[in-house]
Amino acid sequence: MTNAHHATIVEEIATILANVQHPGDQFVMRVHAPKIAQKALPGQFVHIQVSPERPMRRPISIMLTNPEQGTVDLLIKAIGEGTERLRQRKVDEQLPMMGPIGHPFDLADPSKRYILIGGGVGIPPMIFVADHLQGQAETILFAGSEVPFPFALKPSTFLLPGIDSSVKMTIASLESRDIPCRLASKANMHGCFDGYVADLARSYLQALPQEERQRCVLLSCGPHPMLQSVAKLAHDLNIPAQLSLEEHMACAIGGCAGCVVETLEQGKRYYRRICVDGPVFDLNILPEFAA
């Protein structure tokens, strides 16, 4: 008897091709992991052994893949011992890496307009979604950060309703692919919205005609307070939302039930595993983000 999930996750020894350091303890790592690059979908993650001395793996969102080159890009912030060890790893070193793991974003309906809201190291899965949807469905990305964005930025030529013309900076790689994007920060960054990213998205959504707003779906990943603001936005404007969550993780294949979130489904409470039941969940089943 074979279940659909059998052999969906690959264990690969990935080789580090680049590890570029950015301000705020951020780093962008490109690895050669051809099997994972081939299979990954937006919202999925990899589970990395950061060093032999800290053998428990760390779950890291996938930012971008290149199936032809066999590469996977990751944006990581060193926040503890594990991610700090990963930050110090060098080009040509090898990393045991499991992936792709998890329930991806539901992007099946091309008639929708996907509003992507990412904060900090929650930005990477939003970039993967934007890349995936390019030419498939309308996509707009809003990104927030309190440390300098680890991307090349440039002024955007796209006009977005509800957003002041002084808020013009975008991620250059998205602009070149015709994906509209705006940035938010409370750290006084030139050309960025001075405030929270959920408020930036709210300005845009409130300026839309009702029938356009009704076609929107919010997809979001980021710190918990930001996700709460995104949830409030979804509730206030009655827009469906999918949130990508994180939690300490051990096995990442559904075996240990270590990484759970409480859900409320048909009136019953459950703890669902973020690794394989998520990391992407429909807002409607998450009581901690209820209206």
């Binding site: 279940n3 052999a7 969906t8 264990e11 294949i253 559904g254 075996g255």
Partner: peptide, 27 residues
């Protein structure tokens, strides 16, 4: 027990085989 769910979870991994193990203890 407690590490491998209810017996099927590790089959998600390509290359894992139940033939390698004498028994799997359910959660």
């Amino acid at each position: 027990s407690g590490c491998v769910g209810f017996g099927d979870e590790y089959t998600r991994i390509e290359g894992y085989s139940h033939a390698h193990v004498g028994a799997v203890i359910l959660k």
